[in-house]
Amino acid sequence: MPAQTDAAADWSGWRLAHAMAARFVHWAVDTEGSSRSSALIRIGLAMLFWSRWAGELLLYMDQSPAGLFLAANFFVATTLLFVGYQSRVAAVWTGAVGLAMYHYFGFQLGREPWTHHHTYLLAVSALLIALTPCGASYSLDRYLAVMRAERMGLPPPAERGNLLGLRLIVVQLSVLYFFAAFDKSGYAFSSGARIEAIFLWYYAGSDYPAIPGLAWLATLVSLAVVALEYSLAFGLPFRATRRYLLLPGLAFHAIIYVTLPVYTFSATMVLLYLAYFDADAVDRVIARLQGIGPTAGEETS
């Protein structure tokens, strides 16, 4: 009865696909978890915004109405993000400021390097963290909520929430790694030529160093970078492969941080790596380190 066998196989395949889709949808939009990793990213993003732009946006730097308006918005929004007051609104506000710097001041007014990748990544990260319970931990919002609960004789609210924003950060990082590798998947990069040119541009000038084997090393490094970026794109989201990719990924970002002018890009990527980890697992590590219990509502088994 081959027809019945085929039908059974089709049915089994469809059920498998349906189960995988349902699991993905659950992972993407239905997962609830600890808010502590989201809060850490929120605080880290505020500090990265300051690290990158606070110096350039001091009030005396650009005294035009647009410049002062940008600076005022920047400092108020990022301060609210850092202390965690109206955290999700502050995240949207900060992200909007970042996008205004990227699109208007960068592309429209030609202010550089505000059109660079690190600017965009910081801005969208702030917007995405708004889709997490980033204000439910380590924040003024949390302090006020606990005070309110105490006044009403209620237990403190749970430091938990929907993790949609963390999932979208995972997607953003995978898309970034994949297309960064895709851009390098040609002869110019894999031959080592692009890395050699970058090396000459920043370091050696127009004198290729007389070091035997340097061209081979450039080729090997180029191939390794492409392989690593593809691996990070597809491997970091999964626990089984993440354990092998985490250190290479961190090392990669550390190396480009000290060798190339990537500004806050490396630090932002490393901070966003927190999104890959199970939020409750991050919570448990924090609880162990601080000698405190896990967030309310989490299973302790």
Partner: peptide
Amino acid sequence: WTMFSAIG
């Protein structure tokens, strides 16, 4: 996401 593609 074409970082450093024009550098050099």
